[in-house]
Design a protein around this nucleic acid. Sequence first.
DNA 1: CCTTGACCTGGAGCGCGCTCCAACTCCTAC
DNA 2: GTAGGAGTTGGAGCGCGCTCCAGGTCAAGG
Lengths: 130, 130
Amino acid sequence: MKISDLARRSGFSTDTLRYYEKIGLVPRAARDAGGRRVYDASTLTWLAFLDRLRATGMPMRDRLTYARLRAKGDHTGPERRQLLEAHRDEVRARVAQLQDCLTVLDTKIDSYPKGKANDPAPTDRPTDTP
Amino acid sequence: MKISDLARRSGFSTDTLRYYEKIGLVPRAARDAGGRRVYDASTLTWLAFLDRLRATGMPMRDRLTYARLRAKGDHTGPERRQLLEAHRDEVRARVAQLQDCLTVLDTKIDSYPKGKANDPAPTDRPTDTP
DNA sequence: CCTTGACCTGGAGCGCGCTCCAACTCCTAC
DNA sequence: GTAGGAGTTGGAGCGCGCTCCAGGTCAAGG
């Protein structure tokens, strides 16, 4: 698989893929005779998981830590587990926070008239309640 | 209330508060005789709500749009409502995505041995499953 | 052959959302 | 009256995570 294929299948741009390799998030890819990167399917699996970490807001430095542990070998399993457990806790907290915010949003939305956007103006001063 | 009080009570730094005023996210504060900003409690309410919008990932440009509508007056209620409804949908989608990611995380975590981080190494090659 | 286009590298640039700075003014306490 | 601390302004700088660019190499199609 060449980089353009991996890009298409992973959803990351080729620039991002090269960037990820440069910073060590993805192991250095094998090269063909002409120096071009060659990937196998396992990279795709790894990228998909990285994307989950990213989607859940894990900062780059932690993804990098995780990637380095992974590169070190199977014996880093427990450390990686700890990292993921800590991250899971944060994601759970984030979900709880978002759900909390959702009730605030719902309340706020209910406080506004439902009509279409170009209704007659009742007053013309800034609202005091946000 | 002076800016340092508002900062303490809102959780935003004084720099951020001035920045928010500069870009129009917060209406220009009244000034005392010496040119210092003076706030009333309503600003705090507004900031708390802004913080919810921020916490739920609403981008600055949308918060700005919302702030401008608010500044325009009560008759923008329906528009604001639309904005918030759209945002709420995004937050809901985000929560769903996070919950989805959580199950992936859980599965991944279960796949790692539970022992403490300095366990004996079973192999020493990079893991194929991320 | 020669063109085309995908790929390579190192490094610069960017958008976001602040954060910090210099240089100044003003109020308060001693 | 003077030192210190909190406030003011405009503008520069920063960390993150890419994104883009110049200038080159290489392989395949016509």
